[in-house]
Amino acid sequence: MAMSDRFLPLSHHPERATSETAPTKAVLIAVAGLFLGAILFFPLVTVFIEALRKGWGTLFGTFADPDTLAAIRLTLLVAAIAVPFNAAVGLAASWAIAKFEFRGKNLLLTLIDLPFSISPVISGLVYVLLFGAQGWLGPWLDQHNIHIIFAVPGIVLATVLVTFPFVARELIPLMQSQGTSEEEAALMLGASGWYTFLKVTLPNVKWALLYGVLLCNARAMGEFGAVSVVSGHIRGLTNTMPLHIEILYNDYNFVGAFAVASLLAGLALVTLLAKTFLEWRFAGELAATSRRH
């Protein structure tokens, strides 16, 4: 039956949305599958295999190394600062853009997209130009013994800049499509502005907000370019996980490099799994509050 299926005239399949024949479909699916396997899945598996090449012992040995532990701690610290900050500011910016009319709104929208459109290296360089020893504010900072470049504050700043758009980009289109009528209804019912925000605006965008935060978090932990420029690569002090991976690799410590890489990849996979799980678990509620994608 399956074999003869493809020889049936198309008119017997009115439920089909496209007119591709069965072989075409099979080829397309195979190509897509091969491509995803070769480009995404295979390399990812390699990371874990390489990490385990010399056995679990060596793998755990890597994580006992103080420099590696410091890199993990720093990455978690940076994400713990950058993600809540960008969630709060992104939420506020989206709220202002979607619910109010003001001058310079288009400029603000463009600015929010800027970190996506310029290279992360440039985002990092901007801070070097501002706060570096030769930068505009460098001498003043130096006098007051404040260290930003080649120190943790610079890494946090660079990460914040690069990951800023994730939350805002997720929220703005949704909030715009939802309009202001529910907020107006709440105000007419006597609610304060803050109560309206908490009980009407926020619940209507909570899933988009969560998506934005998850994506922001994945990028904050994985950011390489911008952080690399401002970090100075001081082992045990200013190395984040991605930077540490590079250093280990350049030291020919392949097992170490892949061990940290597999941890980083694992964190990203957990993020994706969380997203998929939430999508599946709350599918009905999502459909009710979000625009149709």
Partner: peptide, 23 residues
Amino acid sequence: FQQYALFRHMRVIDNIAFGLRAR
């Protein structure tokens, strides 16, 4: 409102109670 403007994430009972709870 012309387009109802009901709170879509709230049940009917919570929609109607909104003005009282917001006091």
